[in-house]
Simulated assay, not measured.
Amino acid sequence: MRTLTPALRGDVITGIAVTLVGAVYYIATFWIQETKNIVTPATFPAIVGIALIVLGLFLVGQALYRSRKLAEVVPSGTTSAGRASASGGAGADASEGVVGVESAGVVLDAPEEPKSKQVVLQFALFFIYLGILIPVGFLLSTAAFLMTMTSIYAPHRWVRNLIFSVLFSVIIYVAFVYGLAVYLPVGILG
């Protein structure tokens, strides 16, 4: 039986937790009072519950798949230096991203830790967005929020960020207002 790295084990645990939350959320929709409309009050929560179940199962499957691929690339009990020298260096390319192998498991490069100032800025932007959502309106505040958030990660791609922000805001607005008959704040545009 293969052992999972701590990161993959965390993905499996998170995936199982998300799947369970989604299942409980979906089951809870059965207690929502039905109406005669096509889109009932339970429709959106049911969609969210099903999406959580699917995404949780996807996360578990992806972690197990990556674990199997790592086991194929780096067989247990071998070291990357020993394998590279035994195979004439050909095995080194197959284990790209693997720093070293020890008897306890595979050691991978850790992703870069988020900068604490960046995390604080994102939370501050989110609370500002919540504060201006009703007075400014959904379309403008969501587009501005998304533009700011995407610009944090890719400041040099401002045109792409702007197009994404505006299109996403308009699509969500149209889907809610015209598709689900859920009215969002219009703010200064109304």
Rank of each mutant, 00 (worst) to 15 (best):
24 V>S: 14
129 Y>L: 05
5 T>W: 06
40 T>I: 02
184 L>T: 02
88 G>N: 07
27 I>L: 09
82 G>N: 12
121 L>C: 06
143 A>N: 01
132 I>G: 00
139 L>V: 10
78 T>A: 04
51 A>R: 02
111 P>W: 01
85 S>L: 15
120 V>T: 14
148 T>Q: 10
190 G>Y: 08
115 K>W: 09
190 G>V: 08
123 F>M: 10
81 A>C: 03
168 F>N: 13
87 S>F: 07
5 T>S: 15
57 L>T: 04
142 T>A: 08
100 G>R: 14
112 E>Y: 10
118 Q>H: 08
145 F>N: 03
166 V>T: 08
100 G>K: 15
177 V>E: 15
189 L>A: 15
58 F>Q: 12
13 I>M: 13
54 V>Q: 09
144 A>F: 03
114 P>W: 07
83 R>V: 12
132 I>C: 03
164 F>L: 10
158 W>G: 07
39 V>L: 12
133 L>I: 07
65 Y>F: 14
179 G>A: 04
47 I>C: 07
54 V>R: 10
49 G>K: 01
14 T>A: 15
105 G>D: 01
154 A>D: 09
188 I>D: 12
42 A>M: 02
99 V>A: 08
159 V>A: 09
31 W>E: 11
72 E>W: 06
73 V>D: 09
155 P>L: 01
118 Q>R: 10
60 V>Y: 02
111 P>D: 05
83 R>Y: 08
135 P>A: 07
33 Q>Y: 05
90 A>C: 04
97 G>C: 05
55 L>T: 11
82 G>C: 03
17 A>C: 13
6 P>C: 03
60 V>M: 14
22 G>S: 02
117 K>C: 04
20 L>Q: 06
10 G>M: 08
69 K>I: 14
187 G>E: 00
153 Y>W: 13
118 Q>I: 12
183 Y>I: 07
67 S>G: 15
138 F>G: 00
85 S>I: 13
129 Y>V: 02
12 V>A: 12
83 R>F: 11
70 L>K: 00
170 V>D: 09
113 E>V: 10
2 R>W: 07
47 I>M: 13
113 E>A: 13
188 I>M: 15
36 K>S: 13
178 Y>M: 14
135 P>R: 08
98 V>D: 00
27 I>P: 03
51 A>C: 15
39 V>N: 05
90 A>E: 14
181 A>I: 03
113 E>T: 08
96 E>I: 12
103 S>Q: 11
139 L>C: 05
179 G>D: 03
88 G>L: 06
